[in-house]
Design a protein around this nucleic acid. Structure first.
Lengths: 150, 150
DNA sequence: CTGTGTGCAAACATTTTGCAAGCAG
DNA sequence: CTGCTTGCAAAATGTTTGCACACAG
C-alpha cells in the first residue's frame, strides 16, 4: 500500500496534480502549500498544527481551517498522507511517501520515533489469516518513556 | 500491567471498592452498575453505548452521560478497564481483567476479534529498547475484512 | 464561462465542567 | 454531618457543512 521508495517533492507534486486531474479537481495554492509543508516537515501534524504553521509561514495566504481538514481528507483518501490516531492528542498526519513504519511514542514529551520491522509485519499477516481476515491496514503504537525523559 | 488470570466479578468488585476506599471515593450504584455491565458484556463500548444500555436495562436508575464518562475515566486510570481508540468509531472500552491481547477489526461490519501473540509482544519490547524507550503500553490493531464480509 | 474551491460562520458530535441538590460513609 | 457524587445544562473541543464569492481550467 505504501511506496517503497521516497519520492522527491517534484514527483510527489506531479502525482498529486495527476490525482486532481483524474478527479476533475483543481490545483490551488492552498492545496499546494499544504502538500509542500507536509513534505518538508518530518513531524506529525494535527489539522490545527498544520493550519497554524501555514498561517505563520505564509501570512499573505488566505487559508481557513476548513480547507486544511478538507485537503487532509483528500490527501489521505489518495494515500498521499497517512494518519495515526493518538489517544488524547487527536489525529495526526504525515506524508506517506516513505516505507511503511510504526511509531514509538513518548508519554512524557510526546516525541514520536518511527521504526520499521519486517518480522512484525509478517506476523501480522499470519495472525490476520488465522482469524480469517484479509489484512488491509494496521496500526501499531508503542508507548513508553524515551531516553531523554527517563 | 494486565493481570494474567481473569478475575471473578466478586474479586473485581472487591478490587474496585478497595481503590475507591484508598482514594476517599464513594461506592455508588451508578459506579457499581457500570462495572457490572462492563464485566458481563464481552463487547467493546463507547461511552454512549454503555450509557444507552444501562438506561435500557435499569430504567429505574438515574444516570447521566457525564457519570459514564467520569466513571470510565476513573476505571481506566486504575487499570480496571482499558480503551482502544478506533479511528472514526471513537474510543471504546473493555474490562481489563483478561490477558493482554490486541484487536483484529473488520472494516466492513466493525466486528472485533481479539488475539494474543507472545512473539509480537517480545518483538515490541526489543524494538522499544532499540529506540531507547522503556515500554509502558502498546496498541496494535489489524484492520481488514473478516471471513463473513469477504 | 463553468463549476470547483475557498473562507467564514453556523452546525454538529463528543467530551468536560460548574453547580445545586443527593446521598455514602 | 461532611464532602464526594450526581444529573443537568452550559461550555469547550474538534470536525463538518452551507453558502456566497473567488478563481482554476
Amino acid at each position: 500500500m505504501n511506496s517503497i521508495v521516497s519520492l522527491s517533492y517534484k514527483e510527489l507534486l506531479a502525482e498529486f496534480k495527476n490525482i486532481l486531474k483524474q478527479n476533475q479537481l483543481k490545483f490551488t495554492s492552498q492545496r499546494e502549500i499544504i502538500l509542500y509543508t507536509l513534505y518538508n516537515n518530518t513531524q506529525h501534524f494535527t489539522s490545527e498544527d498544520l493550519y497554524m504553521l501555514i498561517k505563520q509561514e505564509y501570512p499573505e495566504l488566505s487559508i481557513g481551517i476548513a480547507t486544511v481538514y478538507r485537503t487532509l481528507s483528500l490527501l489521505e483518501e489518495n494515500n498521499i498522507v497517512s494518519s495515526i490516531s493518538l489517544g488524547i492528542q487527536g489525529k495526526k498526519y504525515e506524508i506517506a511517501n516513505k516505507p511503511h513504519h510504526d511509531h514509538n511514542i513518548c508519554e512524557t514529551c510526546n516525541k514520536i520515533v518511527e521504526f520499521e520491522n519486517d518480522e512484525i509485519e509478517e506476523l501480522q499477516h499470519t495472525i490476520a489469516k488465522e482469524n480469517g481476515f484479509i489484512l488491509t491496514n494496521h496500526l501499531m503504537q508503542l508507548y513508553g518513556i524515551c531516553k531523554e525523559c527517563q
